[in-house]
Design a protein around this nucleic acid. Structure first.
Lengths: 226, 226
DNA sequence: ACATGTGAAAAAATTCACAGCA
DNA sequence: TGCTGTGAATTTTTTCACATGT
């Protein structure tokens, strides 16, 4: 292998990558950073996988969508793989993020320590309540909603996090799109409409709990049967 | 069809249901509740699907894992389908939930209005900081961490939400399991280990953003190619 | 006529199993 | 020897297309 990056010339299609692979990549990254902090210099696909509940083959297959990162007989160099995955996910550079809606959830997002360490910098906050304008929350100034577009552009925010009531979400999203953000995380429990060229992820807290109640109900059904 | 529930005698295996189906079910439910509030008495699979970005066939196939809920030539009765999905997800009954970690995120969860309407009742809060013990946040009393097990049992909480720092998460989870909770939502950016019989979902906020940066990077790659 | 429910076909994702390399 | 990378086989999930019911 060469000096630093192995197989850096990627001609990966990138389009054919399953969504599930990308979410596992995030988990691999988190686990590798943990491994790194534990002082492990290398890790085998089986180790990494079993920590997360995946098979060794799954880990290897996922990674080879993007290149060859391992050393036969050895495994993966932890630090190299961390760097490689950050590059794949695009978080080897800083992303500027604007938060809309400074209620309980917005405040929690503003104060969340996990963003900065992963390459996300919250550059501005916006709220519809005029009483909140001018406030500084977690060191970030809150602006009135009317200035959303201007703020996004001035701060060169590329991503938006929406933490407003469901009824206000679509309107906020439209303004974010208009202002030119490239991606949106929507915490409002509401389906939003977006143009093709803007990515989004919806996080619905009640829905997360429902995944669990279903699993519990499923176990109950299985039990009844026997 | 009969008086109220169509095909109520389910012999569904329940085990063979793909995970993705369950998360779509949550989205269907949310959309149906929206539809209901708009006064729509019936809805066709195509309508429901297109609002969420799915095909009509997908909607029908998902639902038939659990029974027959539609009326050929008509569609689905909105209110009936809402009730049916709640029953499938298990949220036709109330679930008592305990929150561990009353930092910014825990407070946001405590104040989140979307839980109650979906059948989740937050019955207790716990925090490691003794200064927080005795406080009432959003009408819920905060207890010291030492009493976690006792509180879970006294309140008969069946689910736990973990919003503590990563380093503390495994320990909290172990205590929740010991206390007998049936499911856990983990907001700490850390892999947790659980026995088979306890369900869990991990919500990693940075990971959600990474899904988007990847999508943006992907689009950039596609653009370069042309 | 029109929309559901559903086997069958197709597509996608995962797992297997082994060649190749350190 | 031990582990990666990867085609091939398998399994899972989605889509198709039409018989069936109202």
């Amino acid at each position: 292998m060469a000096n630093s990056n192995r197989k850096s010339d990627e001609e990966t299609t990138f389009a054919a990558v399953p969504k599930a692979v990308v979410s596992r990549l995030s988990l691999y990254l988190r686990e590798l950073q943990q491994l790194l902090s534990e002082g492990k210099e290398t890790v085998r696909s089986g180790e990494l996988g079993s920590r997360l509940g995946f098979t060794d083959a799954q880990v290897r297959k996922d990674l080879t969508y993007f290149g060859q990162f391992g050393y036969p007989g050895i495994g993966y160099r932890t630090d190299e793989l961390v760097q490689a995955i950050r590059q794949i996910l695009g978080t080897d550079i800083e992303w500027r993020v604007v938060i809309v809606g400074i209620g309980n959830l917005g405040r929690a997002l503003l104060g969340y320590k996990g963003f900065a360490s992963q390459g996300f910098q919250i550059v501005a906050a916006v709220d519809a309540d005029p009483k909140k304008a001018g406030l500084k929350v977690e060191g970030v100034e809150v602006h009135p909603i009317e200035q959303l577009g201007k703020i996004v552009k001035r701060c060169r925010a590329r991503l938006g996090m929406v933490a407003v009531p469901a009824a206000a979400a679509q309107n906020v999203v439209d303004q974010l799109v208009e202002a030119g953000v490239e991606g949106i995380v929507n915490f409002a429990p509401m389906t939003i409409n977006l143009p093709e060229h803007v990515s989004h992820v919806g996080v619905d807290l009640a829905s997360e709990l429902e995944q669990i109640t279903f699993a519990v109900a499923k176990r109950w059904h299985a039990q009844q049967q026997s």
